[in-house]
Design a protein around this nucleic acid. Structure first.
Length: 1125
RNA sequence: AGUCUCUUAGCUCAGUUGGUUAGAGCGCUACACUGAUAAUGUAGAGGUCUCCAGUUCAAAUCUGGAAGGGACUACCA
């Protein structure tokens, strides 16, 4: 006979190892896909991790989420292909290699050939592949790692090239100058990633200048010169990078910002001047108390001081008194278009060289009045904002600093000087200071001061970076912006706010995608350019490349040979390929690599080598778009964005229909995990110690996936104890008795209607659970689903059904009712195994196999190959669920009363009284009466429907219904209701309506406007919860006392049986030493006691010499138990 | 700096369309139960729902503001 396995203890990690072995030998994962062949596909994309870093606990959460959904959909009948992927290119890999080889970027191509360098990258990138595969298996993540997509594969790159060519053909790929972070010291551009290295932003003190740009008097600006009554009108602008002033091309103002024209003195030259700045910022430069000060006396003072001995010290004081006067006020828009004299003209920064119409006031939306003057010095070459606004307004561009970080030769006295000390020159003189001095002397400086702020530095050279115009290739994402926004609205974002807020805003403010990376290990840009740059050729496939090589060989008389099988689409090989233009000129490849985000963004098509292979499995329609993806929120502007952008541009489609972005994993104190802080959690250790299932369950139930999670292993322990422990106990309980009774589910399924109330209840609740879990999972709310399971298992199954039904399992013969109990409990555990399979796949499978290997109810050998349970609506009975809740509440009230009155549950009591106000409740309760009586050990339930004033009632206004009717009178009405006396309440109850008098106004209320609760029955012990009230009859009659004693004795004897080690069905004889007060109980309940303790006899004897002492109701008696052989 | 997000018991989290005693688990304390026993139950203590203002008869819930935590994007004169 087949037996259910019984265990000595719950060891989840070892269960997992056992199940992993089974999955492997049975090829469960493969089968879970192959058995769904021909079913509707559920498309899932695996975001590729980079295998050159170790997996962390944060990977476990997102992968749990992904696995959970895929397993669920599989059980729901979909075919879910899950192709693993590896992100292999990019800066992190290169930095890793550089570090390992002890070289810098500059050494590549010198100390080490690009060929060897890339070879090294290719090796290193898979360094932790084993670890990843290991964690994948251990955490139970089912993903196909045997045929992963790898972004450095030729085939993968070929699809990327295809995509780039598509974009090129659609005129969505172009080359342009952009302003990028650039390190003159290192001679290289920096990626945003490099800029975000820790420690790159440093506090520095820079010389800052509020410069004065002299306005030109013409028709447009006359309105400024009229009130000024002078030709000295200046625009004031602040800069923290004075070295950009020679490259100034414009001044940017905010169109709606209020500006003023102020008459005052130049603090350095003491000349009478008129300055323009934002109204809000005047106070920053001029003292309020000097407003409308005396200009004449100031001039007199100044004149007396100049030439005197104490010249400078006096001046410092007097500057504090400089008077000022607002002459006029206007908006930014009013001064747009006005011209000013170039501040620092040299040979090299003429209007012709600038190539536009420079030195004008223009408007830009980035201008604020937070600091500075509200007028922004604009050097398009050295700031992204400046460049953008400059381009929009055609003010040209001046780049007076070269790539080494020094002024070019046509910058007058500054020519050749480094703008920062890039060469570690001990005699370096700050050029900013000299510019400041020059402006001070020429009367073009209003304020010069040191200013401390954070500024980005090159993480390798520790020198400040500058923003510099560099050539780069762009994808014109802005061209499809509105379509991207439109399609984004069709995506199901979890949580919604990320899609609408973070992602939505990001789309609204989108800029073109800068694809260029000047690195070595990555996907090369497949664009070849002729020498003079007027012809571009974008290659979209290997075939095309080979054909073009042939073509070039012919046209240029070359002998290039590339074999498809040995071809490598990486540097340096592709750079060696020379193609021919239509004119027969040689074309060389643009040296750039593309952003790695393009690699991963194109994975929907690249993973199937689209459009080069078109077999059944690689059919784009079966693989695109995804039904579901999930990654961390940090991917919002990364992978989620690039997937979306590329799909919209290439296929005019979304890339994914549902996306779940999970939050961060923080340590238990709420800090971000970082190696530096040493608070990272090792997922291997966690899983080995606490099991993957408990970890997964914890991660899923603790918080919604999108909230950040405070990871605390105590929480995993709790999950282990609370959920898995309870389930284990429930199973053990079942197995123990099912094995004794040889229950193997052989009997026919007993119709639910033929079972007991409590069976029908747990099955109703179980089906409600199936329904809820299904809805939650369909809705991508795994947290709610798992919490619902927790509630069912703990509160309903274990704590109520099993506890109340225990007797049914060990008492009596193996017949109808017992079989009902077995079938019911079996079904609950089995269903739970199905429901929890997506969340905790090992334990669920283990549990399922323990059951199914005995009963063979389901032909699937693994729970993951089975179908997800269907709701049986006919089992759901809401009335039944309600009355069971009522039974639980009543029991809890009685128990709490017993506790309060110190009457133990083993002491039977006569009755409880439940005041009720309608017969429905009586109906409901009477159906669960037996349960209640057993649970709380009382003989009878009495219903009190009275309105004779026996019950003291409490009345409470129903604010919801009254509020709508009463509005502002609500407070008074509520007070009046609460003051109604018992007769008034009875009257309302009888007539269903009552008239209140408030301020001589008659206000009628109906019975529905209030809640009437039986609060008390005078003279009884009463407890209530909500509208439920229970009164307990606490009189212990001699008969009840006897029964109580009998039960005490039973209890003690059972304990002794157990301690002595008797088998459950051993028969015994019992002798009790005479103790008069217990005689009646033992005589009158002799049969009952014997039945309970499986005794053949129970006798009172006068003396026992070697028995056991037991304590019953504070009395010690001797007892002797012997086994009846 | 901007955008988003969060703030409820010692801890981790629920809290429906606003409705008057704000819940659960863990932990703590006390007690009970004892053919599930390394299990289980009951009760108790524990709250200015971060703060301020507004809307409303009524605010944990809606609006505005502030503070603090977190994330992302920037670092810009």
């Amino acid at each position: 006979m087949n037996k259910y396995k019984e265990f000595k203890g719950l060891n989840m990690p070892s269960i997992e190892q056992e199940i992993i072995a089974k999955w492997k030998s049975e090829h469960c994962f493969e089968e879970s896909i192959s058995t769904r062949e021909g079913s509707e596909p559920f498309v899932f994309y695996e975001g590729p991790p980079s295998a050159n870093g170790m997996p962390g606990i944060h990977h476990v959460i997102s992968r749990t989420l992904k696995d959970l959904v895929c397993r669920y959909k599989t059980m729901k009948g979909y075919q879910v292909q899950r192709k693993a992927g590896w992100d292999t290119h990019g800066l992190p890999v290169e930095l890793f290699v550089e570090k390992e080889l002890g070289i810098t970027k500059e050494d590549i191509g010198k100390k080490i050939s690009i060929e060897d360098y890339n070879k090294k990258c290719r090796e290193v990138v898979m360094r932790y592949k084993d670890k990843w595969e290991d964690i994948t298996e251990k955490m139970g993540y089912w993903v196909d790692m045997t045929q992963p997509y790898i972004t450095f594969d030729n085939e993968y790159i070929e699809t990327l090239w295809w995509a780039l060519k598509e974009l090129f053909t659609k005129d969505l790929l172009y080359k342009s100058v952009s302003i990028q972070p650039y390190s003159p010291a290192a001679g290289t551009g920096l990626s945003s990633h490099e800029l975000n290295q820790p420690g790159t932003y440093k506090e520095v003190k820079d010389t800052t200048i509020v410069a004065m740009f002299k306005a030109i008097n013409d028709n447009n600006s006359q309105f400024l010169f009229d009130p000024a009554e002078s030709s000295n009108v200046y625009f004031m602008a602040w800069t923290t990078t004075p070295w950009t002033l020679p490259s100034n091309c414009g001044l940017t103002v905010g169109a709606n910002i209020e500006y003023v024209l102020v008459k005052t003195f130049n603090p350095y030259t003491h000349q009478l001047i008129n300055i323009i700045l934002a109204k809000n910022l005047v106070g920053k430069y001029l003292k309020e108390e000097n407003h409308n000060g005396d200009f004449e006396s100031y001039i007199t003072k100044i004149n007396s001081i100049i030439g005197s001995e104490e010249h400078s010290s006096h001046l410092v004081n007097i500057v504090k008194e400089v008077p000022w006067l607002i002459l006029s006020q206007f908006k930014g828009i009013d001064i747009v278009g006005l011209r000013y004299e170039q501040l620092l003209p040299f040979d090299g920064n003429t209007a012709e060289i600038a190539g536009g119409d420079p030195w004008r006031v223009i408007a830009g939306d980035f201008v604020t009045t937070e600091d500075g003057t509200g007028i922004v010095h604009t050097a398009p070459a050295f700031g992204a904002d400046d460049f953008k606004v400059g381009k929009a307004n055609g003010i040209g561009i001046l780049t007076m600093v070269d790539k080494q970080g020094k002024f070019n030769d046509n910058t007058g006295e500054f020519s050749g000087r480094y703008v920062k000390n890039y060469k570690n020159d001990p005699d370096y003189k700050d050029v900013d200071v000299d510019i400041a001095v020059k402006l001070k002397l020429s009367g073009n400086a209003f304020k010069i001061e040191k200013y401390a702020h954070t500024y980005p530095h090159c993480w390798r050279t520790d020198k400040p970076i500058i923003y510099y115009p560099l050539d780069a290739w762009f994808i014109r994402t802005t061209a499809v912006k509105s379509r991207m926004i439109e399609l984004n609205k069709t995506i199901n974002w979890k949580p919604k706010a990320t899609g609408e807020g973070r992602f939505g805003n990001w789309l609204e403010n989108m800029v073109d995608w800068n694809l260029s990376r000047s690195r070595y290990w990555g996907t090369p840009l497949p664009v070849w350019v002729s020498e003079n740059g007027d012809e571009h050729k974008c290659i979209g496939s290997i075939d095309e490349l080979l054909k073009e090589i042939e073509n070039a060989n012919t046209k240029l008389g070359m002998n290039q040979f590339f074999d498809r099988s040995t071809l490598d689409l990486h540097k340096p090989y592709v750079d060696q390929i020379i193609l021919a233009s239509t004119k027969g000129e040689p074309m060389r490849r643009e040296p750039d690599l593309i952003d790695v985000w393009f690699d991963s963004g194109a994975m929907p098509y690249a993973q199937i080598h689209y459009p080069f292979e078109l077999d059944e499995n690689k059919n784009i329609n079966k693989n695109f778009p995804a039904d579901f993806i999930a990654e961390g929120v940090d991917q919002t502007r990364g992978w989620f964005y690039t997937l979306h952008a590329l799909s919209v541009m290439l296929f005019d489609s979304v890339a994914y229909k549902t996306v779940v972005s999970n939050g961060l994993v923080l340590d238990k104190a709420g800090n971000k995990m970082s190696k530096r802080l040493g608070n990272v959690i090792d997922p291997f250790e966690t899983i080995e110690k606490y099991s993957a299932d408990a970890t997964r369950w914890y991660l899923i139930t603790n918080t919604s996936p999108w909230d950040s999670l405070r990871f605390d292993t105590e929480g995993i322990k709790e999950v282990q104890r609370k959920y898995f422990g309870t389930l284990y106990n429930t199973y053990q309980f079942f197995a123990l008795y099912a094995n004794l009774d040889n229950f193997t589910f052989d009997e026919n399924y007993i119709p639910v209607d033929d079972r007991q109330e409590i069976d029908r209840w747990i099955l109703s609740v179980l089906n409600t659970l199936v329904k809820n879990v299904t809805n939650y999972l369909n809705d991508y709310e795994p947290t709610q689903a798992a919490r619902a399971m927790e509630y069912f298992l703990d509160e309903q199954l274990s704590n109520w059904y099993v506890r109340l039904c225990r007797r049914r399992f060990w008492k009596g013969e193996y017949e109808h009712d017992k079989i009902c109990a077995y079938q019911t409990l079996y079904e609950c555990i089995e269903t739970l195994a199905y429901l929890m399979a997506p969340v905790s796949p090992f334990y669920a499978d283990w549990l399922y196999r323990n059951l199914n290997e005995v009963t063979n109810r389901n032909e699937s050998k693994s729970v993951h190959l089975a179908d997800f349970p269907q709701v049986d609506e006919t089992c759901i009975d809401i009335d039944l669920e309600n009355r069971m809740t009522l039974a639980q509440d009543i029991s809890s009230l009685v128990l709490s009363l017993r506790k309060k009155l110190n009457i133990k549950v083993r002491q039977p009591l006569h009755k409880i009284i439940i005041p009720v106000n309608n017969s429905d409740i009586i109906n409901q309760i009477s159906k669960v009466e037996e349960l209640i009586k057993n649970e709380v050990n009382i003989k009878e339930i009495e219903y009190l429907t009275d309105s004779q004033g026996f019950i003291k009632k409490k009345i409470k206004p129903n604010f919801k219904s009254l509020g709508a009717k009463m509005g502002a009178k609500m407070k008074q009405v509520a007070a009046a209701i609460q003051q109604m006396n018992q007769e008034e309440i009875n009257s309302l109850e009888n007539k269903k309506t009552y008239t209140l008098k408030i301020n001589d106004e008659n206000i009628e209320i109906s019975i529905d406007d209030v809640e009437i609760i039986a609060e008390d029955i005078p003279g009884w012990s009463v407890a209530n919860k909500d509208s439920l009230t229970i009164a307990l009859d606490i009189i212990v009659t001699p008969q009840l006392l006897e029964e109580g004693i009998a039960r005490e004795i039973i209890n003690r004897i059972q304990r002794i049986r157990k301690e002595t080690g008797f088998e459950v069905n051993d028969r015994i004889n019992v002798e009790i030493e005479e103790y008069e007060p217990f005689n009646n109980a033992i005589i009158n309940y002799n049969n009952y006691i014997c039945a309970e303790i499986i005794a053949d006899s129970l006798k009172i004897v006068t003396l026992i010499s070697n028995g056991t002492d037991i304590e019953v109701n504070d009395s010690l008696i001797k007892i002797l138990i012997s086994k009846n052989i």
